[in-house]
Structures are given as C-alpha cells and as structure tokens.
Simulated scan of single mutants.
Amino acid sequence: MKRKKILFFIYTMGKGGAARTLLNVMNNLDRNKFEPMLVTLNHDGEYEQYVNEDVQFIKLEAKRLRSGILPLAKIIRKEKVDIVFSTIPNYNMVAILAKMLSFTRAKVVVREADHVGGSLLGNLKCLVYGRFYNRTDQVISLSEGVKQNLVEKYKLKPNAIEVVYNPLDIENIKQQIEIGELSKEVAPIFNQNEKVIVTAGRLVKQKDHDTLIKAFAETNEQVKSQLVILGEGPLEEELKSLAQKLNVEDRVHFIGFQDNPYIFFHEADLFVLTSIHEGFSHVIAEALASGTPVVSTNCKSGPSEVLANGEYGDLCPVGDPKSISEAMTETLTLPPEALQMRVSKGEERAQFFNANKIVSRYGQVILNTFKK
C-alpha cells in the first residue's frame, strides 16, 4: 500500500496539550503506512525540538490564523497531501477552509479536545463549528464526554464521531525522569522533610488555581507541605496575592513552564488538578505514568474517564476547596503499603493510554476515511 501523506496543522508547537498530542501522534505513526508532515504558523514553539527528523516541517510566513488559510491551501495542493489533520476549533476551521480552497481530494480529519460551550455565545460558536465539521471526513473526540458535547452542542451525529484517547508516550516519560534533574533553585523545595504537592497547567480561569491554593492552605494546617505550580499565564500575580492573603506565600512556588515536568511529578508526593472543565486531562495520565498519586476535580469530562470513575485516583466536586483538601490530606497520610499499591495501580492505568496502542488506533481511524 502506498504511504498516505498526512499534514498536521497547528498554530504553534508551543506550551500546550494539543501540541504535545500532535507530537506523540506524529512521532509514533506507522511509517509503513504514513508519511507525516507538520505545518505551523510563523511562531517558535518549545516542542519543535522533539519532532522526529523524518517529519517534514514547514512554517508559513503568516502569523495570524486567517492569514494562513491560502498559504496552507497551496501547500496541500503542492505537496499532494492525502490527509489534513488538525485539532482545536479555530485551527480546525482554518484546516477545513484551506482544504476546500486547495481544490484537492485530500481527506480532512479534525480532533475536538475540550468540553466547550455553555454560554449563549459559546453555544452559537459550537453550532457554527458543527456546520463546518459536517464537511469533514472524520471527527475525532478525545473522550466520551467530549463526544456527548459534540452531539448536544455541535449537533453532530454520534456515528460521525470516533473516540480516541490521548496517546501517552510512557517510554519518553520514563526516560525524562531518568535523565531529569531538579535545578539548584527548585531542589531545596523537595529536600525538606515535608510533603510536596504539584500541579501543571496554564494560569487561567479554566484551571481554577484559586481553589487549589485555598485547598492547599487547609491541607497545610494538617500536613506541612509545599505546593509547586508548573505553568505560566495571566493570573500569576492574582494567585500570588491569594497565597499571601492565606499566609502560605512562602509555601506556594510558581516556577513557570518546564520542558520536563515529569521529574517534578515523580519527585512529588501528590499531583492535584482543580480544573473547571477538561477534554481528557492528559496531565493526569502523565502523573500516573510518573508514579504519582492523583487528586482531581470531577469536571466535565476527562478526569473521570482517565481515573475510571475514581478507581485510580480521587475525584472531588468542582470549586470545593474543603473536599479537595480532605482528599489531599488523606492521600498524603496513607500508610506506605497503601501508598505503594495506589502508585502501582496508577502506573498500570497509564498503560491503557500507551502511545503505541493509541496511535495505532488513530492510524486505523484515519485510514478508514478512504473506505467511506
């Protein structure tokens, strides 16, 4: 069978779960079946350095999404692309329009990664996206919850959507833990005779770090701890003020984006996620693979699927510092044997999302578009 040329389109290979997912899919696709190429706008991204050498990488001259439609259409035509793959609504719209303007028979596969909508404006946007998604050859949802949202708010037919979970590159995670080293500035946080709690994500409203810091302040009264926050975003100063107001500013550490978050997960005693909504929550699966217990909000719609309704980690109500604090305290005070059992179960669960298996599923779903 002739290899299919698949073009992955994204704004930038920057700090985010979408870029990390595309990276895992591109790098692990079966080269006997696919010839992957990557197209981004003219921006530098932290994950570019991890793209395999055999992936053709093109940066458009454009820096804005709408300016990238025609250049992307030209590449689709010039490179004789068989499949255009994109993720996130705005990028998906560009990919769909570019394919249409390429006047080729390339297949379009779009991936929806979050549980969006809710407000009047948000629901209207979903309807518009749905109109365009209906013009694609395949819609991929990264969780059952997101699929349900696509049916309800995008008005897509259930049989037009395939659920494929995020691929987890466990081998790379283990390698990064092995070669990773905490910096001299950060190492002392982990070397005290106290528990360390870690989280990772953009400092934005969706991740609800407010609730996390409030829960941490309560937990710290029971178990002396340190909170390490990985990520950047517009709410950093506001969150620092909250930590100061709660008298834990010397125990809450904002250390920004990290190329290797896995060494932080591995060295910590607990990973906590307090998001208001998620599509899948890749970072929870990464924490499990790093050998770290997890406490998460039971937000729509990913955490409960990753943690199998609480079998592999605690699920708490959204925006409830008290219940999150109680779960954190309980986990941090587990007897050694119970803790090891929980870690082992988490690592076992992470294998369910192993990149080799999940990317194979991606490949099959994409190839099936040629049978329709």
Rank of each mutant, 00 (worst) to 15 (best):
L246I: 09
A18N: 05
L242T: 02
A289C: 09
F353G: 01
M1G: 14
P89F: 12
V146R: 09
Q138R: 15
L288N: 03
F85N: 06
A268Q: 07
A355G: 00
E348P: 01
G45P: 04
Q364R: 13
L235K: 03
D30E: 04
I10G: 07
L38H: 13
H282Y: 11
S143F: 11
T199Q: 08
V164D: 02
V359C: 01
V128F: 14
F85P: 07
R349P: 02
A268T: 15
F265G: 00
S102N: 04
N220V: 13
V139R: 01
D54K: 07
I140K: 06
I358Q: 05
E237H: 08
I140Y: 07
Q206M: 11
A73N: 11
N52F: 09
S304M: 01
K195H: 07
R342N: 12
K345M: 13
F216M: 03
V151F: 04
I58E: 14
P167Y: 11
G130M: 06
G180E: 12
G231Y: 14
G313P: 05
A113D: 15
E286L: 11
N42A: 08
V151N: 05
F254M: 00
F85S: 02
N149P: 00
K224G: 04
D44M: 12
I75Y: 09
M26Y: 13
I189W: 00
T12F: 07
E48W: 12
M100N: 06
K371L: 14
V204Y: 00
G117Q: 06
N309V: 02
N123A: 13
L142H: 04
A308C: 03
G130W: 05
G180K: 11
K322C: 02
L332M: 08
A350M: 10
N28Y: 09
G313V: 01
G319M: 01
